[in-house]
Write a protein that binds this DNA or RNA. Sequence first.
DNA 1: CAGACTTTACTTGTATGGAAGTATACCATA
DNA 2: TATGGTATACTTCCATACAAGTAAAGTCTG
Lengths: 224, 224
Amino acid sequence: MPHTTMLSRPASTAQQVHDWLYQRIIRGELPPGTRISETEIGDRIGLSRQPVREAFIRLAGEGLAEIRPQRGTYIGKISVMSVLSARLIREAVESDLCRMVAGLRPDLSQMEAELVIQQQADQDKDVAEFIASDDRFHHAIATAAGQPAVWQDLERLKSQMNRLRHMSMRVFDRSQTIAQHRAILEALQAGNADAADAGIRLHLRQMLTELPEMAAAQPDYFTE
Amino acid sequence: MPHTTMLSRPASTAQQVHDWLYQRIIRGELPPGTRISETEIGDRIGLSRQPVREAFIRLAGEGLAEIRPQRGTYIGKISVMSVLSARLIREAVESDLCRMVAGLRPDLSQMEAELVIQQQADQDKDVAEFIASDDRFHHAIATAAGQPAVWQDLERLKSQMNRLRHMSMRVFDRSQTIAQHRAILEALQAGNADAADAGIRLHLRQMLTELPEMAAAQPDYFTE
DNA sequence: CAGACTTTACTTGTATGGAAGTATACCATA
DNA sequence: TATGGTATACTTCCATACAAGTAAAGTCTG
């Protein structure tokens, strides 16, 4: 196979439309159940239906949109089952990753830096920045374990969780999240695999309490 | 298998094209690196380029095809990183699931039945049936743990692994796989969480020895 | 007024024609 | 022979037209 060029060509129009919609969905700007239309979006951004349609297909493949033939396309509701499933998978995987990190004793300075960023974002009430740093913190665990590809796979599963987090982060206490992160980091720095394991599991079980509350507050945003 | 709509409506043409190509890729009938073309496939099955194109987009989203703009579309090579990542995730998740099953002591008769099927398929050298039963065996673990949705998520990650298995199952000893399955089942029946955990981890690490051998035998089918 | 039928305005699905880009065979030239 | 330009035959990408299906408003009928 010919060598793949490192020079990144400008992404295709369909790709750009997909990314734009993806971000809007994850951030909650397009609420679950919202109806979207190929022609309507195409007209608004000056494109034909085709690239928009292809973006819809990709979103449906990611579980973020539901295409009902001849009826319309809708922003998918947040699947409670998907969130619980992704949460369980994250707990199992990140638990193993933490044990690997505790054994490797690698450099963890990036995780320290993210903790500082999270404190600042908490003070500034910058939800988007807090979530972004939270992701980088967990990503750093996978990297420190020598398994960066694992995080890529988790990202795909996380999309439903991320939508929930954008909702819940505005409501729930972020300082508790920071404290849990610190406990995990200290256990990793000490090379204490059992403590790191327990810390990450406790941290990721936080969602088990947040999910029912958010589902009760906005029942029409969720589906079983 | 990609999620097929349970609706009675016949699937769209694009969906059928996708499913057809998906099966051919997983089974190795379309080897990695094979060039496929919208027009060529469309002509062969009597369709226009559009439905075929949309099937390509879906396959690319699943990591099974690579669309190179203005150049061509190719069956994706088996990503070693993806296989290793999916394997690590499976080990972590199924380990946790086994611990849950050992605590719940549910009915495990389906897993017993699958063991019988696997022995028969081994004798008959029916590779496809053996793999199908293998999948049902692991699926039953998730179901017994009360987490059927988790298996759906693992399925999406498993596609690259499945391609490898269709290659390696013809080469490697299947009786060893059966013995490992039996050890796991007996540990679960005894409610021995530690033994079940150790058994499933040993079982899933089998791939760590198979992968390098297959990659060495068919290097042009793989990419890092 | 209630209910069934019809019209109409949407939706997504598919087909087709060109636009832009790429790779290769061909050929002239030194 | 080796080299570089050029024509040509592809590819995917996007726009457009039409087909098939849905849903809801409007209308007729009892």
